[in-house]
């Protein structure tokens, strides 16, 4: 069809290549141009791909300051943080003692209470069950807190203790402790480790 139009002199014929010197120079230029072009193409794609990463305003919303001055002992509040519920519970002395008394080796996800709280009175955990993502109940004293007085996930029965550690049920790990810090006695900042 169209190949009948190709003059043989212009068809690339491997047997009459130009002298080796020329060939080397030509190949280098082709290689260099291809490399430069490749770099350009990759650089061109980067802004597009990077646009999918969290935007500046999303990252700015990544910390939330909570006023905890009105939370009494034994009370808990739920706050939205990064689109998920966050449990802040002011534990009673009984709850603290129970959390600290547990034998760590008996836990599915061994963690002492001390490493999970900055101030023993305040439990701060992300309220998302580590099994399949439901929101456990137990923030209110009237709700079912499960066998260990912590949280109970109604979806598949995962039971957490007063330190938010998994004790019964299918969840593999303890409730996540987010980065947080006490700005002062009244304010809790979630999303940042240090003030």
């Amino acid at each position: 069809m169209s190949s009948e139009f190709l003059p043989h002199s212009v068809n690339p014929d491997p047997h009459d290549m130009p002298p080796v010197e020329d060939k080397k120079r030509r190949d280098f230029l082709i290689l260099a141009t291809t490399a430069v072009g490749g770099v350009g193409a990759a650089s061109f794609m980067w802004p597009f791909i990077n646009s999918f990463n969290p935007a500046a305003d999303t990252k700015a919303g990544a910390t939330v300051d909570i006023d905890i001055s009105q939370v009494h002992i034994g009370q808990a509040i739920t706050v939205m943080w990064r689109g998920k519920p966050l449990f802040v519970r002011r534990r009673t002395p009984v709850e603290i003692k129970e959390a600290q008394a547990v034998d760590i080796n008996s836990l599915r996800d061994p963690q002492s209470d001390q490493v999970r709280v900055k101030k023993p009175e305040w439990l701060v955990v992300v309220g998302v069950c580590t099994h399949l993502g439901c929101v456990p109940i137990g923030q209110k004293t009237t709700e079912n807190r499960g066998k260990y007085g912590g949280y109970f996930c109604p979806c598949h029965g995962s039971t957490y203790d007063t330190s938010g550690r998994i004790r019964l049920g299918p969840a593999p790990t303890n409730l996540v402790v987010p980065p947080y810090t006490f700005l002062n006695d009244k304010t809790l900042r979630i999303g940042q480790d240090k003030a």
Partner: peptide, 13 residues
């Protein structure tokens, strides 16, 4: 405006 100011590389796109 959010694309221009907040999205990474948004103003380029």
């Amino acid at each position: 405006e959010r694309i221009m100011r907040e999205v990474n590389g948004g103003w380029i796109i």
